[in-house]
Design a protein around this nucleic acid. Sequence first.
DNA 1: CGGGATCCCTGCCGATACTG
DNA 2: CAGTATCGGCAGGGATCCCG
Lengths: 134, 134
Amino acid sequence: MSHLTEAVRAVADNRGRKNLGETCPVRNVLNRIGDKWSILVLMTLARRPHRFGELRRAIADISQRMLTQTLRDLQRDGLLSRHVFPTNPPSVEYRLTKLGASLLRPMAGLVRWANARHSAINRARTQFDRAARN
Amino acid sequence: MSHLTEAVRAVADNRGRKNLGETCPVRNVLNRIGDKWSILVLMTLARRPHRFGELRRAIADISQRMLTQTLRDLQRDGLLSRHVFPTNPPSVEYRLTKLGASLLRPMAGLVRWANARHSAINRARTQFDRAARN
DNA sequence: CGGGATCCCTGCCGATACTG
DNA sequence: CAGTATCGGCAGGGATCCCG
């Protein structure tokens, strides 16, 4: 369990810094994948490369604006790549880079935890709210 | 690698739902730990239980308001517990629950990924920005 | 088809002041 | 000590319109 305490220390060492968003690696990652759409985009691209319209239809309730912005941010951090084919009409394909693919494994750990525990969380939540009303 | 594609499918199955914040387990988790302070609080409590003031000093640049709110939210989801000692002046101790402790392992995976790759991300980022200016 | 530009509104979060 | 209450800024994100 030493790699766990190691991770704890790695975060603890960044407590109290001024701009966590820029100095702390963990905050950097969570600012990226913790937003509303990044995980859905990454997980969708994990299956296969997608064109812009395909992503839009796959995620369905994402706005065009946020899909564009999310893709740009992920591309900026090197997690996915953008390939333009000069056809008519134009087509653009997005795919995970190696760096992006390497994020899938730790992310899958979180996803499995979420699916395994979300019923326990919901129980705790409703119980807490019920107690609060008294 | 089947448990990875399993996680991909678990997220993919939640695409296109109406209220992701309430229906999708993954969104539930990320809405909690993806906010500005939750991880710092959880990681600090991972070392040992802390009193309110200890947490405030340990994290340092968290406001009193956000510490209170973050603690309440984490308690509501059953990730930590609150113990009041009726001393004078009053003292309150926060500690991880078993549920909260079970989150440490998957979270550590993300933390290690972040620390291992953040230099690569920074390189990609500055390179992207430089290319954008031309 | 794959975006860019604008408008606008909600909710996160910080600062400050007050309480048992 | 361990909170609660209130005000306000501003960034995240949705809706809409437009373009090559």
